[in-house]
Amino acid sequence: MASQKTKKRHVGMGRQGVAVFFENKLAVFGLSLVIFLVLFSFLGPLIYPSEQVHTNLSQVHIAPGEQGFILGTDGVGYDQLGRLMLGGQTSLIVGLSAGLLATAFGTIWGATAGFIGGWVDAVMMRIVDSLMSIPALFLFMLIATIVTPTIPMLVLVISAFAWLNPARMVRGDSIALRSREFVTAMRGMGGKPLRAVRTHIVRNSIGTVIVNATFQVADAVLYVAYLSFLGLGVPPPAANWGGMLSTGLSEIYSGRWWLIYPPGIAIILLVLAFNFVGDGLRDAFEVRLRKR
């Protein structure tokens, strides 16, 4: 009977969290925008196929609306709309993969450090502090110049340093949770630390983890754009929005606006969308709002 009441209470809290999320108009707009950009990038090429491997110098710098090109072509003859879809795939894959991987590793690191405490916590968090003292963009640029920038490599490079903030946040939750009654009771019954971290610390920090994951994805998308803008992104014929923006800036005085504004606007919209979703999730997981 008690378990049924607990289950109903959790269901009710889950519904209330969803209701709180959908009350946030910016969060709903952000979620709709993320869905639209995902469909645009991955289903768009099926509806609007275009050649994105071989260049065609006979169709260079065609203006939007001419010769059947909705957004025109770039300096080597690629269809700009198709290029925008292909670039969205790279930006989304790297951003989502790096953001989620960094959040997962940071969660494990922070939960372990906060739960164990003592000298282990001190050593683990000094490593975090040391890495955070170095500008992340400088490290990304250094590594990107040493290794070949492929999509898996970009994911590893970005996630290798993006896990620091999640680690610090989850570590704070872990310190607060390790003295709670249910954790103390489990340890008193002989429960192993690994089980405590997995079943109690991480699960009770899930709100912090999910909210932080959305912001990590947004940051990862920006890092991809930074590196690609500096010429350290995935080499052609692959594309991403940062590289398209960098290429388009060389045409800024030629009046070819379609090479600059579409990728720039796409980056801004994607980052804003994930931030809006993160704000909505933060409200949904806020205990005080759930108890309204």
Results as ranks from 00 to 15, higher is better:
A98I: 15
G87F: 12
D74C: 03
I62G: 08
V94D: 02
V60H: 04
V76M: 04
S58R: 14
I93Q: 02
G77Q: 07
Q80V: 07
Q59I: 12
S97W: 13
L84P: 01
G82H: 10
G99Q: 08
S91V: 01
G95Y: 00
L86E: 13
S91Q: 04
F69Y: 05
G72T: 06
Q59T: 13
Q59N: 11
Q89A: 12
P64G: 08
S97Y: 03
G99S: 10
E66I: 10
E66F: 09
M85C: 10
A63W: 09
H61W: 09
V76H: 06
S97L: 14
T90M: 08
Q67Y: 05
D74S: 05
A63K: 14
G65P: 06
S91K: 00
G88R: 00
E66D: 12
A98T: 12
L92E: 04
A63Q: 10
S97Q: 10
G65D: 05
I62C: 08
L96D: 14
G87V: 11
S97C: 12
G77R: 10
R83H: 11
T73S: 02
E66V: 09
Q59H: 11
Q59F: 00
V94R: 02
G65E: 07
S97F: 03
S58M: 08
G99H: 01
I70V: 09
S58W: 11
S91W: 01
H61Y: 13
L96G: 08
G65F: 03
G99F: 07
P64R: 08
G75L: 00
G65S: 05
G75E: 00
V94G: 06
L84K: 02
A98E: 09
T73L: 04
G82N: 10
I93S: 00
T73K: 03
G68D: 07
T73W: 01
V94C: 02
V76R: 01
L96A: 10
P64I: 06
L96T: 04
L57K: 15
G75R: 02
D74N: 13
S97G: 15
Q80C: 11
M85S: 02
I93T: 00
A98L: 13
F69V: 15
G95E: 01
D79W: 09
P64Y: 11
L81W: 12
T73D: 07
P64M: 14
G75K: 00
G82W: 10
L81D: 06
G88D: 01
D74T: 05
D79H: 10
L92N: 03
L71H: 05
S97E: 06
Q80S: 15
H61I: 04
L57I: 07
Q80F: 10
G95T: 09
D74H: 05
I70M: 15
G77W: 10
G82P: 05
F69G: 14
G82A: 08
G65R: 00
V60K: 12
I62W: 04
L71D: 09
S58Q: 08
Q89E: 13
P64D: 12
T90N: 07
G72D: 15
G82K: 03
I93G: 00
T73Q: 01
A98Q: 11
V94Q: 04
I70Q: 14
P64W: 09
F69T: 13
Q80H: 11
S97D: 15
I70D: 02
S97P: 11
D74Q: 07
G88T: 03
G77Y: 13
R83F: 04
Q89K: 15
